[in-house]
Design a protein around this nucleic acid. Structure first.
Lengths: 217, 217, 217, 217
DNA sequence: GATGAATGAGCATTCATTCAT
DNA sequence: CATGAATGAATGCTCATTCAT
C-alpha cells in the first residue's frame, strides 16, 4: 500500500485523503470540516466532492485503507513466527510499531465512533471479521498442540492486544510520554501468560526448578 | 451519588443531566445538540442554560459525577480484598459490573475525546491521577511482599484492565452479544498472571507436579 | 383572514410570511433563497427556521392561507347570487378581483409546480377538492332546474374559469397591460354560453325573435 | 422538425436535447441540473457545454423547437378547415392531440416561468405573436362574414383555448386520469358558443324553432 | 427559575461553468 | 469533438448561545 504521509507530490485524490487523515486524527471526523480538509489539501471544495461525494466517504476510504494496512502487517508478522511465544511477541511488536509509525491513522482507526455510516460500518466489521478469522487459522497449530489455551473466541483479542491497546490509547491521547514500544517485552510477556496453557506457561517461568529459589528483583 | 437512571420524578437539573447522559451516550458529545437534550428532558433551552451555561459544562458535570462513582466502587472493592489475587478479581468484577450497570455512563466516560475542553480535561486527569494514586497505595503491601511485580507505572492500568476494557468496548459498541461479566474469571486470571511475580504465579498454576513444591493459595 | 400586504407593523412570523410571498411570487419558490426572505423580512435566518423549519413549510403555509382566502371569497360570492347567470358572473368577477387585489398570492398559487412537497401537495389537493364540492353543492339547484348543463365533472372548472385563468396568467406574467377585470362581462358571457343548457341559453341570446328565421350559416 | 422521442440512435446533440427535455419536464428548468442531463444523455459535461454553452441555451433550443412544432400543427389544421365551426373544432383537437402526443414538451412549454432569460423570452414572445397574427389572418374571413365575434384581441386565445388549456394542465399535472381528448367535442362546442356571434350561434342551437317548446333534456 | 423567540457564524453540499488533455 | 477533473460562489439548514418577558 502506498504510504500516505509521503512527501512526494500527490495527485489530488491522494492529497485530499492525506489531508483528511490529518484533520480527522486531530479533531475527529465529526468536528473536522470540509474546509479544514480543503485548506490542508489545497484542493477546492468542488474537487473534494468530485472525488468523494461525502465527508463520510472520505472517512470510509481512509478506514478501509488503514484497516488493510494494519492487518496485513499483523498477518505477515505471524506468518514468520516459529513458535507461539514468538508469534505473540511479533504481534505485539507489529501492533505497536504500526501505531507509532502511523499515529494519525491509528488514532483515526481506533476512534471508531458511529461517525461512519451503518453501511460502511457493516463493511468494516466484515473486513475485520475476515482478517480475524485468518489470524486464528494461523494460530491453529498451537491450539492443537496444547500450547495456547482454548477460550471463548471473543476473549482472544482482548487478552492479546487489550493491554497494548490501552497503552497505545494513552500515548495517542498525549497522556503518555514514553514510547509505547518500550513496553513490548512486558506486554508480550503478559499476553503470553494470559494465553498460554498452564503447562506451556510453567515451562517458561524463570524459576520453577529449585523450589527454594529466592525471587530476584 | 444520586442515581441518574431512576424513575422517580427528577428536579429540572437532574432531569437535564439524565437526558444529557442519554443523548451523549447515544451520539457522542459533539453530535448531541442542546435541542436533543431539551426534548428529552422536557426543559426549555433557557432552563438548560440557566443551570449549566454551556454544553461543555453539562458534559463536565456528568464526567465528574461518573468518574467519581466509578472510582469509588473500584476503591471500595479493593479495600475489602484479603489478598492480591482476590483484589484483582474484585477489581475486574467491580469494573465490569459497573459498566453493565451503567452502560450509558460507561460509553460516555470511555469515549474521552477532546470534546471536553482543555480546562475540564485537566481537572479530569487530576481526578484520575489522584484516584490512581490511592489505588496504588492500597496495593502497596503486595508489592512489598513480592507478590505483585514492580513495573513501569504506566503499565499497571493496561495490564490490569486493558483486556476487560477491550471487551467492554466491544460490548458497549454492540459488537458483542454476551454479557461481559461472564468473562470475569478468565480476565482476572489473566490479570493475575500478568501482574504476579513469577513466584507468586508459579504457586497458583494448576499443574506444577514437581512433588516437593507447595501450591500456596 | 388577516391581510398580509398591510403596512401595520407585523410580528416576526407574519413579516416572514409577507416577505416570502413577495419573493416567491417574484422568482418562484425554487429560485427564492432564504437569504432573500431574510433581507426582506429583516429577520435572521435562525428566526425564520425557528418559525418554519423549512423553506417548503413557508411555502405551504402561504399556500394554505392563500387558497383559503381565495375560495372563501368565491363561495361567499356564489351564496349571494340569485340566479345561475348572476352566479357565474359573480364568480368570474370575484375570481378576477381577487387576482388583481393579490397578484403576488395569485402568481404564487397558480404556479403550482411540484415545489411543494408531496405531503403538502396532498393536503392542498384535499383542500381544493373540498371547496370544489361545496361549490358544486351551491350550484346544484340550477342543475336540477335544467339551467346548467350536466357535464363530466372535470369540465366545470375549465369551462367556467379556464378563459379567465388564461387571461389572468397573461396579466400576471406581464404579457398583458390592460386590467383583466375589464373582460369580466365578456368572460362571464362566454362561461354562461358554455355552461347553460341550450334552452336556457337560447332564452338569453340577444336576437331570437324572428321565430321563423333561419340563421343559415 | 425531427421528432425527439424517437428511439433511433441520436447524435450527441440530439441526445442531449432529448435528455434535457425529459429532465426539464420532470423537475422544471431550474431544478434540473446539468448532471441530470449528463446522466440521461450519456454525454460528458464537456460535451454538453461544447454544444450548448449554457443550460439556458438548451432550454431555449427546446423551446423554439417545441413552439414551432406546436404552432405548425395548429396552423396546418386551420388551413384545412371549411367553416368556422370546423376550424374551431380542429384547433381544439390539434391542440389536445399535440399535448397528449408530447406531454413532456407540453409540460415544458406551458411552464413558462421566467427561467428562460429575458433575451430568449423576447424571442419567444415575438415568435408567438407572429404565429398568432398568422392565425388571426386565417380566421379573418369568418370575422368579416359576421360568424365570429369581434373581441378585444387578448380575449381570443383565452376563449378559444383557455378551457382546453386548463384541462390539459390538470392532466399534465397528474390530477386528471381521463384522456383529455375525450373532451374535444365538449370543449369545441364551448369555444364555438363563446366565439360565435349570436346569430351564428342561434343557428346551431339544437332547439330554436318551436318558440314554445319546453326544455326536455 | 422558566420560557422560547431571536441571533448569526458555520457547515455540508450542490451546481453551472471552465479548461487541460 | 469528447472527456472529466477542477473551481468556488451560493444555498438550505443547524446549533450554541443570548435575552426579554
Amino acid at each position: 500500500m502506498k504510504t500516505i504521509e509521503t512527501t512526494v507530490p500527490l495527485d489530488r485524490k491522494s492529497a485530499i485523503l492525506a489531508a483528511a487523515l490529518a484533520v480527522f486524527a486531530e479533531k475527529g471526523i465529526e468536528a473536522a470540516t470540509i474546509d479544514d480538509i480543503r485548506q490542508r489539501s489545497q484542493a477546492s471544495v468542488g474537487s473534494i466532492y468530485h472525488h468523494f461525494g461525502t465527508k463520510e466517504n472520505i472517512a470510509a476510504a481512509l478506514f478501509a485503507q488503514g484497516l488493510d494496512d494494519y492487518w496485513n502487517g499483523l498477518l505477515a508478522g505471524v506468518r514468520e513466527a516459529e513458535d507461539a511465544r514468538a508469534a505473540i511477541h511479533i504481534l505485539l511488536a507489529t501492533h505497536l510499531d504500526w501505531i507509532v509509525a502511523r499515529p494519525e491513522l491509528a488514532r483515526f482507526l481506533f476512534a471508531r465512533r458511529q461517525a461512519v455510516s451503518p453501511a460502511h460500518d457493516q463493511a468494516i466489521r466484515q473486513l475485520t471479521a475476515d482478517h480475524f478469522k485468518t489470524m486464528l487459522a494461523l494460530l491453529k497449530p498451537w491450539f492443537q498442540q496444547g500450547i495456547l489455551r482454548r477460550l471463548a473466541p471473543e476473549l482472544y483479542a482482548p487478552l492479546l492486544l487489550g493491554p497494548a491497546q490501552e497503552l497505545a490509547r494513552h500515548w495517542l491521547g498525549g497522556r503518555l510520554r514514553q514510547d509505547p514500544r518500550a513496553a513490548i517485552d512486558e506486554l508480550s510477556a503478559a499476553a503470553w501468560r494470559s494465553l498460554a496453557t498452564d503447562e506451556a506457561l510453567a515451562a517458561t517461568l524463570s524459576l520453577q526448578r529449585p523450589a527454594h529459589k529466592e525471587p530476584g528483583k
